[in-house]
Design a protein around this nucleic acid. Sequence first.
DNA 1: TTAATAGTTTACAAAACTATAAACAATATT
DNA 2: AATATTGTTTATAGTTTTGTAAACTATTAA
Lengths: 106, 106
Amino acid sequence: MKDKTIYLLHANICKALANPLRIEIIELLGEREVSFNDLQTETGALKSNLSQHLSLMVSSGLLVQRRDGLKAYFKLSSEKIAIACRMMREILIDNLNKQHEMIKHL
Amino acid sequence: MKDKTIYLLHANICKALANPLRIEIIELLGEREVSFNDLQTETGALKSNLSQHLSLMVSSGLLVQRRDGLKAYFKLSSEKIAIACRMMREILIDNLNKQHEMIKHL
DNA sequence: TTAATAGTTTACAAAACTATAAACAATATT
DNA sequence: AATATTGTTTATAGTTTTGTAAACTATTAA
């Protein structure tokens, strides 16, 4: 029987991306570090909800957190994350375009 | 109020990857088309379960399905999907290596 | 020390996801 | 026509994810 652990771990990384707010966070982080406060302002999310999502992203290894006094700052743990995220966006756009073509040819 | 539709759609693409069996399927498909039967043999999944996952992947635009008589065949709708998937795997491996380093330095 | 600020954690209900089993449909074979 | 093959769909029960609200913690300021 083949070991499926790697698929489970791999799926967990994908899961950490699989939420609209978390996608928005990744795009806001882009190349730079952003404070919790700015993330809240820009996403409009509830503090508690934002904190939960950020915590999930940190513990799944997508983000790194730093604290300075009361303030918390977050950044991507690797630029590969932004790249993978952009690639998914491309797949989405391609799909939307294909659907659009389908509809046009009716 | 900013429109978040794009984040929702983007997250849906990520969700379509966010399951161990679906990751395994994507890797099996790689560059080539594979029959339902072969997918079942190689994954060891239940027919009904496999069919549900494949159906989800088709409707989310990740896969294309073809039928020939009784047989069903599946392939990736774009090679970008394999690439994105490999990139996620790299992120995973990097994370595991980082964790390993952390543990070593205790 | 008290109050204010900035996040975090916990509790909980609703929604989404998953695996299994059983019923079903479509095609091919006898 | 009857049977077998190859999947698909539906039903269901258990699990996970999610957003909100409330309680809590840590740091800073008065």
